[in-house]
């Protein structure tokens, strides 16, 4: 039974305590390869010890990345993306900067790249930059979390475990991109209010509770089902999602062809979100 496996993981986790960073043992299914993976799973009867080994041998096979095409983006598209994302994840719209929750949002060039702001770059200045969690390769938020509620998965996604989060907000202080939001109030209160005005919930996705931190999760729940992230689905011409570790992936191909910016590279966090300019 899986409980035994949990115990094993606990022991394994404890024995590798000294190692920094949460190196979880599981590889995410690739989009469109769900079925093949399912078969593979079958051989192991739900046990994933093998996957761990495989990864050690060859290094990470997956590192998800998001490319945002600043040439394709428009104000309307940006708004659509934000709307889609927040509805897909039942993010309430507090309409109040104090309590707001933002998974993805619009921001001006000046605030997106404050340290490398080039005031003569008038093209960029007018563009609606979309900000989201950068799913850094070296995430400071995961480093500071005292309970590993936020952690970097082997596929590069910086995940947030709402069930474990104690709400200390250390990650918010640590995130150099301001990507994290805290549920200052019970999100359901607001959602109910909005629902009364006609908002629909995404019934496949839970809500959060007050007192935990949340952020963009690269639609990990959709990836698991073999789908693209919601934002990509909303505007496939603006948002490009793919595997950075795979040289032949769509994103690598685009990056080879276009000039891209990443935020605050000098901090060494290695963001996985690229702005194509």
């Amino acid at each position: 039974m899986s409980m035994d496996r949990r115990k094993f993981l606990k022991v394994a986790g404890l024995s590798t305590l000294i190692g920094l960073g949460g190196s979880s043992a599981f590889e995410l299914l690739k989009p469109g390869k769900v079925d093949a993976e399912m078969e593979h799973e079958g051989h192991h009867g739900g046990h994933h010890g093998k996957a761990h080994k495989k990864e050690e041998d060859t290094g990470p096979k997956t590192r998800w990345a998001m490319l945002i095409d600043m040439k394709a983006i428009t104000k309307e598209k940006a708004e659509k993306i934000v709307h889609t994302c927040h509805h897909a994840h039942n993010v309430p719209n507090w309409g109040d900067p104090k309590n707001e929750i933002k998974w993805i949002w619009e921001e001006e060039y000046e605030h997106v790249f404050p340290d490398s702001y080039n005031e003569y770059d008038e093209i960029l200045e007018k563009l609606p930059f979309l900000l989201m969690c950068n799913h850094c390769d070296e995430p400071p938020c995961a480093r500071v979390c005292p309970v590993e509620a936020t952690f970097r998965r082997p596929d590069g996604i910086v995940a947030q475990d709402y069930h474990r989060c104690i709400g200390c907000r250390f990650c918010m202080a640590a995130c150099p991109y301001g990507s994290r939001s805290f549920n200052w109030l019970d999100p359901r209160v607001k959602l109910k209010e909005e629902m009364a005005k006609g908002r629909k919930l995404n019934k496949r996705f839970p809500t959060r509770m007050r007192g935990v931190v949340e952020k963009c999760n690269f639609c990990v729940e959709r990836l698991a089902e073999g789908k693209q992230p919601a934002c990509v689905e909303a505007c496939p011409d603006v948002m490009h999602f793919g595997n950075l570790a795979d040289e032949n992936s769509n994103v690598r191909k685009i990056l080879r062809a276009r000039i891209s910016l990443r935020r605050k590279l000098e901090l060494g966090t290695k963001p996985s979100v690229f702005y194509l300019v």
Binding site: S2, R6, E27, H163, E225
Partner: peptide
């Protein structure tokens, strides 16, 4: 609880029953 950890933390979405 175990499912929760598997799905959320381990990224494992499939459970094989007895």
């Amino acid at each position: 609880n175990d499912w929760r950890d598997q799905a959320l933390r381990d990224g494992n979405r499939w459970y094989v029953n007895k």
